[in-house]
Amino acid sequence: MTDRPETGHAPVHAARYFDGAQVRVGTVVAGADGIRLLPTRAPDGSPHLDGLVTGLFTDHHVHLQLVDHTLLAGSRLGAVADLGAELGWISDLAAGAAVQNSGKNPATHPTTPETAPEPAVSPESWTQISYAGPFLTAVGGYPSDRDWAPAGAVRQLADPDDAARAVDDLTASGVSFLKVVGNSDAGPVLDDELMRALARLAAEHRVPLVAHAEGPGQAQRVARLGATRLAHAPFSEHLTDDEIAEQAATVSWISTMAIHEGEALEVVTDNVRRFFAAGGELVYGSDMGNGPTPVDLRGAEIDALRTAGIDGLDLLTALAPADPLLSAAPLLLLPDDDPNRSRLLTTADLEY
């Protein structure tokens, strides 16, 4: 006789798991209500789960209005930060409303019609969405002249009063960040007075100021004027070691390395390697929607981070996984501790 379920699945497995800070030993339990991770050790003799368990990952830079956002359900992403979309659209999506994407990036999403996720996808697998709303840019600045930018996804600021109205509107609408643009390679940029005003307003409203910095000197300029995070690891030029040290002390970077190639990729890889070695905070971001990016974890971005020397626990930390001990939370299994091989943990993984 045996008290094991007739399904052929062992109810308890010993498992290694990453809690966001370190690898620990716990227990994976399969029951009628799904799979749970417990922080206690499994009973002696329990089978061992082959791989590392953790929560769903975070992508800190996406543009959901340019992709088939319904594919997020059931993906390996538990949270995303949208850094440029029409405010009403993205706030509706974050609240769970059914919305259509803009269709302006055909290279990124298929031509099939928007559909709801398959009923088999549980509500818990829906990705949490935080957002900035529109790009805040100079009059005529990037990306106001780009065909891919959805209507309402760019707000052009002429002076500090304009900036104050914009920040009041956005923070009253529940944004989690402000996204400003300093792209001198593609047009006018917000002047120093406007950038300082936006930094002050962001601090007053207790929201991070995330800056797209592109062009010579722009990464240092936006950091000096009060940006708290760069939307892209700097790729326009090699920063000096002193500049890297200043950046590491004042701002965090979102990686977005795999959107580059050639010289820009070499530059961003060098900057990231030295920034991280200097103690800078680097988080994973794919710039989802910029070209043919997956609506999921992007393997090329993981590879780029590894090339820059970020691997192991450092890589897992940059991916900012959800707490795997949360009840009913979806779990990921990472064979050989490799994020690129990660997949949703299912009862099939618990077969004897």
Rank of each mutant, 00 (worst) to 15 (best):
M1K: 01
T2Y: 14
G8L: 05
H9G: 02
H13C: 08
Y17M: 10
F18N: 00
G20K: 05
Q22M: 13
V23I: 15
V25E: 15
T27Y: 05
T27H: 12
T27L: 01
V29W: 07
A30E: 15
I35C: 12
I35E: 13
L38S: 12
P39K: 13
A42Y: 09
A42L: 13
P43I: 08
S46T: 04
L49M: 09
D50L: 04
V53N: 13
F57E: 14
D59V: 01
D59C: 01
Q65W: 00
L66P: 03
T70M: 09
L71S: 14
L72F: 04
G78S: 07
A79L: 09
A81P: 00
D82T: 01
L83C: 04
L83E: 11
A85F: 03
L87W: 05
G88L: 06
D92W: 00
G103E: 13
N105I: 00
T108V: 15
H109L: 12
E114A: 09
E118V: 00
P123F: 10
S125H: 11
Q128W: 04
P134D: 11
Y142T: 10
P143Y: 10
P143I: 06
R146I: 01
D147G: 13
R155V: 04
L157Y: 03
A158L: 02
A158I: 00
D161E: 15
D162E: 03
A166G: 10
D169E: 15
S173G: 08
G174E: 11
V175C: 06
F177D: 15
V180N: 08
V180M: 05
V181M: 14
S184H: 10
D185I: 05
A186G: 02
P188I: 02
V189R: 05
E193R: 11
L194V: 07
A199R: 12
R200W: 03
A202N: 14
A203S: 06
E204Q: 15
R206D: 14
V207G: 05
V210H: 08
G215R: 12
Q218G: 00
A223Q: 04
L225S: 04
H232M: 06
A233P: 05
F235A: 11
E237Y: 07
E243K: 07
E246S: 04
S252T: 06
S255H: 10
V267Y: 08
V268G: 03
T269P: 15
N271D: 14
R274S: 08
A278V: 03
A278N: 09
G279F: 05
Y284W: 08
G285P: 04
M288N: 12
G289C: 08
G299K: 01
G299N: 05
G309F: 07
D311T: 02
D314W: 04
L315S: 15
L315P: 13
A318P: 04
L319V: 06
L319C: 07
L326Q: 15
S327Y: 06
P330H: 09
L331M: 05
D349N: 07
E351K: 13
